[in-house]
Design a protein around this nucleic acid. Structure first.
Length: 271
DNA sequence: TGTCCATGATCAA
DNA sequence: TGATCCTGGACAT
């Protein structure tokens, strides 16, 4: 269940647990047999994330493993080897001390360098990466009539933000999710980007999305954090019909581009 | 045991 | 805009 920070954590975890000795690569489920065989016995040179895409590079082969978790995909790391296979494991990496199992990914493939480049080229700037250029996103937003809440979910505009971050960042910045991109204004975009950088890098460090934190929100200082069912505390995400933490109004929910959009009608009004 | 829902994205119409 | 794919957890029955 991933937004971009999850993929960056995975890239770091894979590098830490697997870089060095040759890996045993297999596809117990069978749906990635050819790719798994290609990487079997090779060594992981690096792992890298861009938005919600994970790339694993191997020293001995030119192909890169590309993984996209989709809505359900999951990696599990266990410090045991060998480990019995349970369930549908699409891809297994075994370092000899750690076993990493991938289940339910939307994409898992061995790609040639041009295919990797094609994927990276169609992604917008990733707020977690130091090489991100928020101006590239602004160029798209400023020319679009689409609602800002729609644009933030478009991975070619901003890479890595998903349904939680878009809802939370728009709440925190007091922005009506239906404001068209071309009416947002540069100043508010800069504030949204800066907040995405803070929130997503914080989630990377914490391992969960927690947007109501003293260091993010001085006026929330002293208020004890309350855990939500997704594992962190948030202002509006999945809080439909509950009271806004800030103004007490009922949090609204609507479907936008096939996803549930949450916002506070009191705090997020057009200007 | 069955139904619904989900932090995603693509494709057809 | 709607259907579809991947999986599992929460909840109702």
């Amino acid at each position: 269940m991933p937004e971009g920070h999850v993929l960056h954590r995975l890239a770091a975890a894979l590098t830490e647990s697997f870089a060095g000795p040759p890996v045993v690569s297999s596809s117990p489920q069978g749906r990635f047999s050819a790719g798994a065989a290609l990487f079997d016995g090779t060594t992981i040179a690096s792992a890298d994330a861009v938005g919600k895409h994970l790339f694993i590079n191997f020293a001995e082969v030119p192909q890169t493993a590309h993984v996209h978790l989709g809505l359900y995909g999951k990696w599990s790391f266990v410090t045991a080897s060998p480990l019995p296979v349970t369930g549908a494991v699409r891809w297994r990496l075994d370092s000899g001390t750690t076993t990493a199992d991938l289940r339910g990914p939307a994409a898992c493939a061995a790609l040639d360098p041009p295919a990797v480049e094609a994927i990276r080229a169609r992604l917008g700037p990733d707020p977690i990466r130091d090489d991100a250029d928020p101006d590239a996103a602004w160029q798209r937003i400023a020319q679009s009539r689409r609602p800002i809440a729609d644009l933030l979910m478009d991975q070619s505009v901003v890479a890595g933000a998903g349904n939680i971050f878009r809802a939370e960042v728009l709440f925190r910045q007091g922005i009506d999710p239906y404001v068209p991109g071309n009416q947002l204004g540069r100043e508010r975009w800069d504030a949204v980007w800066a907040d995405l950088v803070v929130l997503m890098r914080s989630a990377l460090k914490l391992g969960r999305i927690d947007t109501v934190r003293p260091e993010h929100e001085p006026e929330a200082m002293g208020r004890p954090p309350r855990e939500d069912d997704h594992g962190g505390e948030v202002y509006v995400y999945r809080r439909a019909l509950k009271e806004c933490h800030r103004c007490g109004a009922d949090i609204a929910v609507a479907t936008l581009a096939n996803r549930n959009l949450f916002w506070c009608p009191g705090c997020q009004q057009r200007r």
